[in-house]
Design a protein around this nucleic acid. Structure first.
Length: 343
DNA sequence: ACATCAATAT
DNA sequence: GATATTGATG
């Protein structure tokens, strides 16, 4: 049980699909015409990060039309207009309307729906990164769910931390605290013990592998990911959260109020909450640096480039599926990423 | 540039 | 109500 930690990624490597195997997949997610329209030829991971200005040369109508989906995400193509024909030159708005603008960045992304699965991935990522490195960007990278942005993670992280704080406060005094409604999602994944008592510090820096598997991204991301992996590797006490390769997910566009939602109950995948390590009533409060640590100075250690940057995502592959809904005024579009496999 | 937080908006 | 966005601050 302990050995697994030593070579958890050795097993990754073995089972990871070849890059060739995945690349076509990412591309196929985009309809050919769309790809053409957007000038996407190689899966050069536009990478999901929020902004990576792809300058294009076509304007768009100001409506909620998608432009420049990061490589492979959301094609809202919601209510706007027909399909992909704006490529050429659908009469964009004549300049009159919206001030000359790049609709590309002005588009709203659908709201992300944090399913229990997605949240678990988030928790696993945080667990593996270690408190120190568990910041939005690195978490996002480790999760490697395309379409997921740093702000998605940041927002979720913020709430998650509040949740953890409440969990600590609970037990001693009186009170109160947990409104089940709010915590349902968070309760769906067990909270690793270290989250509550970060008492452990990497007392001894072990060695770090000079090469790090993880890749799929580019430059910056590689570096950060490498640092993260290294940290995880040198971290003796991290939970054996298992990251799997080959996870497939689907994104779902729809309105929350939509009938066909994916509530926990309908998922059947719930349960097993409350079995965390912090159940102890006599529990005092810990001082999770990661909950309270307000200032997170950047202290990244540049790691040497790996010799063979041939790997892909450390974790899973998610696929998105789209569903447009609501032609209604109140309809919001939502992005739901969910794995098809995994616990 | 990024992380964090509280407040606010959708 | 859950997530996004914003603004201030480190």
């Amino acid at each position: 049980m302990r050995e697994e930690e030593s070579d958890w990624f050795a097993r990754w490597e073995e089972e990871l699909p070849s890059p060739e195997e995945l690349m076509p997949l990412s591309q196929s997610l985009i309809s050919p015409d769309l790809a053409l329209a957007f000038d996407i030829r190689s899966p050069s991971h536009g990478n999901n990060n929020s902004n990576q200005p792809h300058h294009h040369h076509h304007h768009q109508t100001t409506t909620t039309t998608p432009t420049t989906p990061p490589s492979q995400l959301q094609l809202p193509s919601s209510q706007a207009n027909s399909s992909a024909e704006f490529a050429a030159d659908s009469a964009d708005l004549g300049s009159g309307g919206a001030a000359g603008d790049e609709p590309a960045r002005t588009l709203k992304r659908p709201r992300l729906v944090w399913t229990p699965q997605l949240h678990k991935r988030f928790v696993d990522a945080v667990a593996h990164l270690g408190i120190k490195n568990a910041v939005p960007k690195t978490i996002m990278q480790l999760m490697s769910v395309d379409g997921l942005t740093r702000e998605n993670v940041a927002s979720h992280l913020q709430k998650y931390r509040l949740y953890l704080k409440r969990m600590q406060g609970l037990s001693s005094g009186g009170g109160a605290g947990s409104d089940p409604a709010t915590d349902r999602l968070f309760a769906s994944s067990p909270v690793p013990a270290h989250f509550l008592h970060p008492n452990r510090v990497p007392s001894s820096d072990h060695f770090m592998p000079s090469f790090v598997p993880i890749a799929t991204l580019q430059q910056q991301q590689q570096m950060a990911a490498a640092a993260a992996a290294a940290a995880a590797a040198s971290n003796p006490h991290l939970q054996p959260a298992q990251f799997h390769h080959r996870q497939i997910a689907a994104a779902h566009f729809g309105s929350p109020t939509n009938g066909g939602f994916h509530s926990p109950t309908s998922n059947g995948q719930f349960g097993s909450p409350t079995s965390n390590g912090f159940g102890s009533p006599t529990n005092g409060k810990f001082d999770p640096s990661f909950l309270t640590r307000q200032t997170q100075q950047q202290q990244q250690q540049p790691i040497h480039r790996m010799s063979t940057p041939s790997l892909h995502s450390p974790v899973g592959n998610y696929v998105e599926d789209l569903e447009s809904a609501n032609a209604n005024g109140g309809g919001r579009t939502v992005l739901t990423l969910f794995p098809t496999r995994d616990d």
